[in-house]
Amino acid sequence: MIHFHFQKYKYGKELLVDCFNLSEIPGQSISMKEPHAASFYEIFFFLKGSGSMVLDGKKLDFKSPAIVLLPPARPRQWVLKSVPECMMIIFEGEFMEAFLKDHLFLNRLYFFGNYDSPPLLPVTNKNMQYFHELLHAIKKEIRNLSEDSQQLLRAYLYQLLIVLNRHYTACYNLKGNLYRNTDILKFKELLRQHIREKQKVAEYAELLRMNRNRLNQLCKEVFGKDAHTIIRDELLQSCKNELLLTTKTIAEISYEYNFSAPSNFVRLFKTQTGLSPAAYRGQYAN
């Protein structure tokens, strides 16, 4: 598995956001056939063309105009007959979190933390034109950096992410509340931090200092499923990333994620995905 890391000093001074045309990076990212992942947030704006990507073992087709939104460490493999016309914006999480003094902001966006709806947003030509103009403003500012560019770029990105979230929630009939219950946002953040050692509802309810019944109620109100299911989904996604992004053995992953035996890990994984961990890893290797 190939890993991409953010080039903070590409423009001399440290900058944690970048915007460019895909044609500017030949031989990298979407034009690669090999499975790969990035350590930063990525948003692809497909202006012309079509293709597919393999994500979590499933093939996802897209046709322009469309947008693909990927959080860090999300393994993918592109299946393209030709490289589409595409603009990209990439950024590190701290670029927005430090500006807003809200480390939960990116958790408020449905498209970066949602395993039920695909990370694909079909849009109209009119909507894509709006995004295209905003991206060009971002790109122009990056190419002509000044003392106050960091603040303007954060404002542009903030605007872009909120408008994208509105379109995404409307597309998939989600509740669309960008500022939903803070306890739920903390729950999602705690999951990412502790999923390796904690997989019980009671453990997260204790960290949140609330009754487990209250946590289940909040999860059902916001996500339409109980806390146990959300924990299981996060566990499976994290294990999938380990399978694709590392060379750890099945046994090593099972013990790292607090399974009592590798067979229990294999059983859960196969029940939920229909594939054994080895077969899931093999799909990408082949």
Rank of each mutant, 00 (worst) to 15 (best):
I138C: 09
Q129W: 03
F91T: 12
K139W: 00
V163P: 01
A137H: 13
R108D: 06
L161A: 02
I142D: 03
N144Y: 05
L161R: 01
Y115G: 02
H136A: 13
S149G: 10
C171K: 07
F99G: 13
E85V: 15
L174Y: 04
L153T: 03
Y110R: 15
T124V: 08
Y168S: 11
P122H: 03
A170G: 03
V163Y: 15
E141Q: 10
M87T: 03
V123M: 13
N127C: 06
L106A: 03
L135I: 06
V79W: 14
K175T: 05
N127L: 14
I90T: 06
E141G: 12
N114L: 15
I142N: 03
N125M: 06
P118M: 11
F99H: 06
V123C: 04
I138E: 06
S149V: 14
F105D: 15
L174E: 08
C171R: 07
L100P: 10
N165H: 05
L109A: 10
N107D: 12
K126T: 07
A98K: 14
E92S: 02
V163E: 08
K126D: 13
S82E: 14
E133G: 14
G113E: 04
L80G: 02
L145T: 04
L174G: 03
V123P: 03
L104Q: 02
L152D: 02
S149A: 14
M128R: 04
L100F: 14
I89Q: 07
R154A: 14
L145H: 08
A137W: 11
P122T: 03
S146R: 06
I162H: 06
L164V: 07
N144S: 13
I142E: 03
I142T: 03
P118Y: 14
N107C: 04
K126C: 05
R108T: 05
L160M: 15
E133F: 09
P84V: 00
V83N: 05
L104C: 02
F95R: 00
E92Q: 07
N127D: 05
N165F: 02
K140G: 00
I142S: 03
V123D: 04
P84F: 00
P84S: 00
V79G: 08
Q151A: 10
P118T: 07
G176A: 13
F99S: 05
F95Y: 00
S117K: 13
Y172C: 00
H136R: 08
N165G: 01
V163D: 10
E147G: 06
N165V: 01
F112C: 10
N144K: 13
Q151V: 13
Y172M: 00
Y115S: 08
F111W: 06
N107A: 04
E141V: 10
F95K: 01
N114W: 06
L109H: 11
A137F: 12
H167R: 09
L145W: 07
Y156V: 15
L134D: 11
I138P: 14
L80Q: 04
A98T: 07
V79Y: 13
L120W: 12
A155R: 08
D148F: 02
I162G: 05
F99K: 14
V79S: 07
M96P: 07
D148V: 04
P122M: 02
A170Y: 09
P122S: 01
D116M: 11
A155I: 13
V83P: 09
G93P: 10
Y110F: 06
E97S: 05
E147D: 12
N165C: 02
E85D: 10
D116A: 11
D102M: 11
Y172D: 00
Y110W: 11
K81V: 11
D116I: 14
P84Y: 00
F105N: 08
